Amino acid sequence: MAVQYRWATLGCGVIGHQLAEAMQRLGGNLYAVGNRTHAKAVQFAEQYGIGKVYDKIEDMFQDPDVDIIYISTPHNTHIKYLRQALAAGKHVLCEKSITLNYYELEEAVKLAMEHHLVLAEAQTIYHMPIYRALRERIDRGDFGPLRLMTLNFGSYKPYDMKNRFFNRSLAGGAMLDIGVYALSFARWFMSSCPQEIATQVLYAPTGVDEQASMLLKNEQREMATVMLSLHAKQPKRGMLSFDKAYVELMEYPRGDKAVITWTEDGHKEEIVAGETANALCYEIEDMERTVAGQKDFMHLDYTVDVMALMTKARQDWGMRYPEEE
């Protein structure tokens, strides 16, 4: 599928570069770039042959030639830019976590609905082909009922309290940075949003969540455990347990392979779908299909559920960011 719309990127960090590369892999290119540091935007545009660089970020929102804006600035800036982009009539794909909390997201969703726009979180899990392949088999009843899942995501970040991972002023912490993946995985497979939630937290010296655990249960009695850490390495591993089998996915944020172990005799089956390297290509394609009105491929309803869970966890802990005080 070739790129159909004119995209502008707000932010030119690691994700911005991946976006530009994905656009070119799809046979297109970003139309424009904006960044808080203008010189970086100029350098970025030169690297990828992008024709337009905005002197001020606000100019992006007022450009009549822009169809879709990809926002990849720090979490705590998202709502400010979402307000401006949506009010100006732009479709938005926003890097995760899409906002700081449920209340900001509620405001953005309302704005998008008022202006008849597509608002979505750039959550790879909702777009990687392996997840659709598994859902088809689950819906067909191949594995029997889902009973529980376990999700791990841990990285070892050195203690640099100015780094965004630990920086409270940059909305650091495990929940918004990596918990969003684990909870999106859980929501993708659960029959409904968990209604019961219990959590524990350990804080970094800056007051953000360095480590967290969660227990979840929904109305269908499906359960999940989630373990997150920014200072203890764990495999990115998701496991789903059904009556007839259990399913494991490694490196699940951009997973492309699942291993099924059948309960009755222990034999294994492998499913491969999609490619990790094309993660942003799948996001771009699904966003464009949704903007074109084919059907909703973006799962904003799941994003809302996940944000509600993350907000509830932080409320239980009493942890707030400066913007929330």
Rank of each mutant, 00 (worst) to 15 (best):
L100Q: 08
L100G: 04
S184R: 07
T150A: 02
L228Y: 03
M214A: 15
A313M: 13
I125F: 13
K217A: 08
A313C: 07
T77K: 07
V259A: 03
H127M: 07
M298A: 05
Y156L: 10
I260R: 02
A292K: 07
V259N: 01
V66S: 03
G274F: 08
L183P: 15
G34L: 01
T311P: 00
L249V: 10
E121A: 15
D63V: 06
Y252K: 09
L26R: 00
D139F: 11
A186H: 12
E264I: 06
F44N: 06
L300E: 01
D160F: 03
T276Y: 02
I71Q: 04
G144N: 02
R168G: 12
I125D: 12
Q294P: 01
A2F: 01
I178M: 07
T261S: 07
H231E: 09
Y246S: 10
A186R: 05
I130C: 07
E323V: 10
K312S: 12
E210T: 05
D59N: 08
Q24G: 10
R83Q: 14
T77S: 13
V118E: 02
G172F: 07
Y246T: 11
G51R: 03
V226N: 05
E270L: 05
E251G: 11
Q195K: 01
D65K: 04
Y48P: 11
A224D: 03
A212G: 11
A279K: 07
L202M: 11
G255M: 12
H231C: 13
